[in-house]
Simulated assay, not measured.
Amino acid sequence: MFARPILTALMLSALTLPALAQDADTVVAKVNDTEITLGQMAAMKIGLPPEMAGMPAPELWDLMLDQMIRQAAMAEVGEASITARDTAALAIDRRAYLAGAALERLAEFEPTDDEIQAAYEKAFPADKPVTEYDADHILLETEEAAKAVIEELGKGGDFAKLAEERSVDTGSGLNGGDLGWFTTDRMVKEFGDAVASMEKGATSAEPVKSQFGFHVIKMNDSRVQEPPALADIRDALIQQIRREKVEAEIEKVTAEAKVEKTEGLDPAVLEQDVLGVGTE
């Protein structure tokens, strides 16, 4: 019989022994000849929605492993009778995943403060201030109807009342024709150009034709747009910088790749049953 001090020491030693080494290649189950690894389980967990990934570990483990066992069993059935369509789809899925993974890693970088400042200055150049306009309009279907409204305004007619009664743009018409503040790039070109050429307080002397009809415009005011504070749009700028870097890398890698397109193929060949799915 062990003396108590020796027994206690052995028990403590057992408790502190390191667990067996476990890595991505650790096999957690085997379905016939297919191995399911710890790495595959971990990859599956990363792709789960948050509500599932947050489940207690034992429940999540059993759920995922059961799913992967069923998947492995059915995959063997599918592989035993693999078709041309299956082979093509697997190649597409592999390419799509690898490309996505490469782009995801590329987009993980953190832009420097200088890069963020440069993106801000590019979006809101100090030497090119943007003007905002406050205008109302009455939209009519015909030029004659628009000219009639202009004539009534010239006789002292109330713009807001005429907008409510006559404008086919019912959204702004209910508000007396009010369009609020806007930049000209948000409007159709004809309307934007007309507003930008008008004096404060002026009303259209002639109808302005656009794809929507004939506009009678009242220009209320204009102002230089105040750019947002950098701190308020910092996150958006970071995402923009990342997108631009990813797009530039795609262009660079594609340009450097050796691409050989087979000449002479008729695009109409896609209308043929090249995968034999019609006979499956």
Results as ranks from 00 to 15, higher is better:
residue 153 L to G: 03
residue 169 D to S: 08
residue 143 E to R: 10
residue 162 L to V: 07
residue 162 L to A: 06
residue 158 D to A: 12
residue 170 T to D: 00
residue 187 M to N: 06
residue 173 G to N: 05
residue 154 G to Q: 10
residue 185 D to R: 14
residue 175 N to R: 15
residue 143 E to F: 01
residue 143 E to N: 10
residue 164 E to M: 08
residue 182 F to I: 03
residue 163 A to T: 07
residue 161 K to D: 15
residue 179 L to W: 12
residue 147 K to R: 15
residue 153 L to K: 04
residue 187 M to A: 14
residue 144 E to Q: 05
residue 143 E to T: 05
residue 147 K to V: 01
residue 179 L to I: 03
residue 176 G to R: 10
residue 170 T to A: 09
residue 188 V to E: 13
residue 144 E to D: 14
residue 187 M to R: 12
residue 190 E to F: 02
residue 164 E to Y: 01
residue 194 A to W: 10
residue 137 H to S: 14
residue 156 G to Y: 13
residue 143 E to P: 03
residue 182 F to V: 10
residue 152 E to D: 13
residue 144 E to M: 00
residue 140 L to F: 02
residue 193 D to W: 07
residue 151 E to K: 13
residue 169 D to M: 05
residue 166 R to V: 11
residue 186 R to D: 04
residue 154 G to H: 07
residue 180 G to L: 11
residue 163 A to H: 08
residue 169 D to Q: 07
residue 150 I to M: 10
residue 174 L to W: 05
residue 148 A to R: 10
residue 158 D to T: 09
residue 194 A to G: 12
residue 143 E to S: 06
residue 144 E to K: 04
residue 181 W to P: 03
residue 159 F to M: 09
residue 196 A to N: 13
residue 186 R to K: 13
residue 163 A to S: 11
residue 165 E to F: 00
residue 153 L to A: 04
residue 162 L to M: 15
residue 193 D to K: 11
residue 175 N to C: 00
residue 140 L to N: 12
residue 164 E to K: 13
residue 172 S to Y: 02
residue 156 G to H: 13
residue 182 F to N: 06
residue 140 L to C: 15
residue 151 E to W: 00
residue 175 N to E: 10
residue 190 E to W: 02
residue 153 L to S: 02
residue 182 F to W: 08
residue 152 E to V: 00
residue 185 D to F: 12
residue 193 D to Q: 14
residue 145 A to C: 03
residue 169 D to Y: 09
residue 179 L to N: 14
residue 154 G to K: 09
residue 165 E to K: 11
residue 185 D to M: 11
residue 152 E to Y: 01
residue 155 K to Q: 15
residue 167 S to Y: 05
residue 166 R to P: 02
residue 156 G to R: 11
residue 144 E to T: 07
residue 157 G to H: 10
residue 144 E to P: 00
residue 147 K to F: 00
residue 190 E to D: 12
residue 158 D to C: 08
residue 166 R to D: 03
residue 192 G to S: 10
residue 182 F to R: 08
residue 161 K to Y: 02
residue 182 F to C: 05
residue 187 M to V: 06
residue 161 K to S: 14
residue 140 L to G: 03
residue 167 S to Q: 08
residue 147 K to H: 11
residue 137 H to R: 05
residue 191 F to Y: 15
residue 140 L to P: 00
residue 185 D to G: 15
residue 163 A to L: 04
residue 181 W to H: 11
residue 158 D to H: 12
residue 184 T to P: 03
